[in-house]
Simulated assay, not measured.
Amino acid sequence: MSLVPMSDILTKANEEGYAVGGFNMNNLEALQAIIEAAEEENSPVILQASEGAIRYIDMEYAVAMAKAAGEKASVPVAFHLDHGGSFEKVIQCIRNGFSSVMIDGSELPFEENIALTNKVIEAASAVGVSVEAELGMLGGAEDDKEVEDQDATLTNPEEAVEFVDKTGVDALAVAIGTAHGVYKGEPELDFERLDNINQKVAVPLVLHGASGVSDEDIAEAIELGINKINVNTAFQQAFTAKTRQVLEDPDVYDPRKICGPSREAMKEKVIEKIRLFGSHNKA
Score class of each variant (00 low, 15 high):
residue 249 D to M: 06
residue 119 K to W: 02
residue 198 N to D: 11
residue 165 D to V: 01
residue 119 K to N: 13
residue 31 L to P: 10
residue 251 D to A: 00
residue 96 N to Y: 11
residue 44 P to Q: 01
residue 41 E to I: 02
residue 262 S to L: 04
residue 164 V to I: 10
residue 141 A to T: 15
residue 72 K to T: 09
residue 239 F to C: 05
residue 165 D to M: 08
residue 205 L to A: 03
residue 170 D to I: 03
residue 224 L to N: 12
residue 32 Q to C: 02
residue 8 D to P: 04
residue 105 G to W: 06
residue 267 K to V: 09
residue 142 E to Y: 11
residue 210 A to P: 12
residue 103 I to P: 06
residue 26 N to P: 03
residue 266 M to A: 01
residue 270 V to Q: 09
residue 217 D to L: 08
residue 143 D to L: 07
residue 244 R to N: 14
residue 152 A to W: 12
residue 90 V to L: 01
residue 43 S to F: 08
residue 186 E to G: 00
residue 89 K to R: 06
residue 120 V to W: 08
residue 177 G to T: 00
residue 216 E to Q: 10
residue 57 I to M: 14
residue 33 A to W: 09
residue 8 D to V: 10
residue 44 P to I: 05
residue 34 I to W: 07
residue 182 V to C: 01
residue 108 L to S: 02
residue 246 V to W: 10
residue 101 V to D: 02
residue 177 G to Y: 06
residue 101 V to M: 01
residue 9 I to P: 09
residue 19 A to M: 10
residue 27 N to P: 03
residue 160 A to Y: 07
residue 273 K to L: 12
residue 243 T to S: 13
residue 6 M to F: 14
residue 114 I to C: 07
residue 137 M to N: 06
residue 26 N to W: 11
residue 278 G to C: 07
residue 216 E to Y: 03
residue 126 A to L: 07
residue 281 N to W: 02
residue 257 K to S: 05
residue 268 E to K: 08
residue 206 V to L: 12
residue 146 E to H: 11
residue 64 A to I: 00
residue 101 V to N: 05
residue 123 A to F: 15
residue 32 Q to W: 13
residue 254 D to W: 12
residue 169 V to L: 10
residue 89 K to P: 02
residue 110 F to P: 11
residue 110 F to L: 09
residue 217 D to C: 10
residue 261 P to R: 00
residue 197 I to Y: 08
residue 209 G to K: 04
residue 17 G to H: 15
residue 248 E to H: 03
residue 141 A to I: 13
residue 58 D to M: 00
residue 162 E to Q: 15
residue 95 R to M: 04
residue 96 N to Q: 08
residue 114 I to A: 04
residue 101 V to R: 01
residue 235 F to M: 12
residue 39 E to I: 02
residue 229 I to P: 11
residue 76 P to K: 00
residue 130 S to W: 14
residue 34 I to H: 10
residue 254 D to L: 05
residue 261 P to F: 08
residue 123 A to P: 07
residue 250 P to F: 05
residue 98 F to P: 14
residue 164 V to A: 05
residue 102 M to Y: 14
residue 256 R to Y: 14
residue 67 K to T: 09
residue 218 I to Q: 04
residue 4 V to W: 09
residue 103 I to N: 01
residue 267 K to P: 14
residue 127 V to C: 04
residue 98 F to E: 05
residue 201 V to G: 09
residue 277 F to D: 06
residue 109 P to M: 00
residue 195 D to S: 15
residue 110 F to I: 02
residue 83 H to T: 07
residue 155 T to A: 03
residue 237 Q to K: 06
residue 264 E to Y: 07
residue 131 V to F: 09
residue 111 E to L: 09
residue 64 A to Q: 12
residue 196 N to M: 12
residue 50 S to Y: 08
residue 33 A to F: 09
residue 35 I to N: 12
residue 176 I to L: 08
residue 108 L to A: 02
residue 195 D to R: 11
residue 177 G to A: 04
residue 229 I to V: 15
residue 106 S to E: 02
residue 29 E to C: 00
residue 227 N to D: 05
residue 50 S to W: 14
residue 144 D to T: 13
residue 210 A to S: 15
residue 15 E to T: 04
residue 154 L to R: 03
residue 26 N to A: 01
residue 111 E to W: 01
residue 204 P to T: 02
residue 257 K to M: 04
residue 144 D to P: 11
residue 255 P to D: 04
residue 102 M to P: 13
residue 80 H to E: 13
residue 179 A to T: 09
residue 204 P to Q: 06
residue 37 A to Q: 02
residue 247 L to C: 11
residue 270 V to M: 05
